[in-house]
Structure formats: C-alpha cells, structure tokens
C-alpha cells in the first residue's frame, strides 16, 4: 500500500484516496491534422512502460480531485517525489 503526498493538500494520505492516471508528460500533438497515423498511434496507444524510476500522473480522487505528478519506482514502488503540474516548465529534466 502506498502513502502518497498530495502536493495541493500538502498531506500524506492512503493510496485508497487516489487513482493512478497514467504516464506523465504525454503531450497532445499541437497540429492534429498535420501528423501521420503512426504519430497519432504513438500519442494514443504507445507507452514507455519504463522499468525503473517512472513519472506518472495521479489524481486525488477522494480529496481535492486535482491531478499531479509522481516519480515512483516501478521496481520497488517507492515514491521518490511528487510535484504539481507546471513545475517542469523551466527545467530540462525533472
């Protein structure tokens, strides 16, 4: 069972309050009409599925209902850091 720190509520709560919401940093294509079927497939279906430290989205479903970012190990489940959206804007690598 995970103990997750919500960066908005600023409290660590039981995992049962949260729902996982998939891999982070998948940006919707900026020119949807201009890209190929392969690029669409990559955006919609293909995933990194990284083994190791992995950035993902969680939503505080039974709390503030906001989405945020979590870096978590997919090997040990250890949560390394949490961040609100937008924190990555001025950094090359979060």
């Amino acid at each position: 069972m995970l103990l997750i720190h919500c960066p908005y509520c600023k409290e660590s709560r039981d995992q049962s309050e949260f729902s996982p919401a998939g891999e982070a940093f998948i940006a919707r294509p900026k020119n949807p009409e201009g890209i190929s079927d392969e690029e669409w497939a990559d955006y919609v279906f293909y995933r990194t599925n990284h083994k190791g430290n992995h950035w993902e989205q969680w939503v505080h479903a039974n709390g503030c209902r906001k989405y945020f970012l979590v870096e978590r190990s997919t090997i040990s489940h250890q949560i390394l850091q949490v961040a609100p959206f937008g924190a990555r804007n001025n950094e090359t690598e979060l």
Binding site: L2, S16, P20, T74
Partner: peptide, 12 residues
C-alpha cells in the same frame, strides 16, 4: 491501475 514490475500489488 499503476505500472509495476514488482510482482506484488495493493492490499485493497
């Protein structure tokens, strides 16, 4: 619902 390679899951 989360990704994992750990061969264990949540109690809930």
């Amino acid at each position: 619902g989360y990704n994992s390679y750990a061969q264990r899951g949540s109690t809930k």
